[in-house]
Design a binder for these strands. Structure first.
Lengths: 137, 137
DNA sequence: TTGACTGCAAATGCTTTGCACCATT
DNA sequence: AATGGTGCAAAGCATTTGCAGTCAA
C-alpha cells in the first residue's frame, strides 16, 4: 500500500493528517522489513527531527486499531514489530540471524478454518510463526 | 507430567530441590489452565506464603530453559502465561472470554515442516494460535 | 562447607499518559 | 473557534537483577 493510500484511509477514518503522521506513514509504506517502534522512530526522525517517540507509539497504536498495520511480537525479541497490512501471509523467523521471511499457503488457511469450526469457533485472527535454521544445501 | 516427574527432571538437570521450587512445581503440575506468573505466584503463596515473585520468575525461567515448561505470549494479554510441556499441541483463544482450548493436528504439523523446507529451513520451533469467537449453534 | 538459591528492593526497558501548547479542520 | 494532535517528562508495569543472608548437597 502506498503512503497516499494509507493517508487516505486515515482521513476516511476521521484522523487529522498532521506532519508527524504523514512522516510515519511514509516510513511504513517504504519499509520492506518489519521495523520495531524504535526503528520507525529513528527513520521518522531523519525526515522530521522534531518527532517524538510518544507520537510514534500513539500513531502505530491507532494504525493497528484501524487494521492498517499489523503488530507482531516475535518470540526472539522482547519488543513489538510492525508491518503494513498487505495481503495475508505468515512468517518464518531465522533463529540465527533474526531475518524474517514471509509465506502464504492456501491449504493451511483452510485447515485453520476447519480446526476452529470443529472446536465450535469462528476464526477471527491467527498467528502462525515458524522458527527455523537455514539448511546448508 | 506429575510433580514428582518434574522434580526428578530438575534434579537430573542439576538443580537443587528447595521448598519454593517444590511448591512451584506442584502448582504447575496441577494447573490445567495456562497460568500467568502472577497466578503461579498467588497459588504458590497459598502453599508457602514466604515465596517471592522473584523466585517464581526465576524458576519459571529455568524450567523454560530446561524445556519442562512452555512460555506463551498470547496476544490478548500483555504478560506471559505458562504450561507444563506435555504432548505437542496448539491453542485456540476465545477472544471474548480469554478461555484457551488446545488442539492437535497432524496435517498441520506436516505442512509446517514442508513450508519450512521449501524456504530452505529446518523447522525448530513454531507458534500457532487461533483467535476465535464461539459459534452459536 | 560452599555454591546455589532466596527474599527484598531497586533497577530495567518497553510502553503509556498527564499536561500544556499547537495545528488541522 | 474547537477538537484533536504533539512533545516532553513522568508514570506504569511486567520482568530482571544486585546483594546479603540461607540452605541443600
Amino acid at each position: 500500500m502506498s503512503a497516499q493510500d494509507l493517508e487516505q484511509k486515515c482521513i476516511d477514518a476521521g484522523l487529522k493528517m498532521t506532519t508527524p503522521r504523514r512522516v510515519i506513514l511514509n516510513v511504513l509504506a517504504h519499509a520492506h522489513d518489519h521495523p520495531s517502534v524504535e526503528e520507525v522512530y529513528e527513520r521518522s526522525k531523519k525526515k522530521d527531527p522534531s518527532i517524538s517517540m510518544a507520537t510514534v507509539y500513539r500513531t502505530l497504536g491507532l494504525l493497528d486499531e484501524l487494521g492498517l498495520v499489523f503488530r507482531h511480537e516475535f518470540s526472539d525479541a522482547d519488543y513489538a514489530r510492525y508491518e503494513v497490512n498487505e495481503e495475508h501471509h505468515h512468517h518464518l523467523i531465522d533463529i540465527d540471524s533474526g531475518k524474517v521471511l514471509e509465506f502464504q499457503n492456501d491449504e493451511i488457511e483452510k485447515m485453520k478454518q476447519k480446526i476452529a469450526a470443529n472446536l465450535g469457533y469462528e476464526l477471527v485472527e491467527c498467528r502462525l510463526e515458524l522458527y527455523g535454521r537455514k539448511l546448508k544445501k
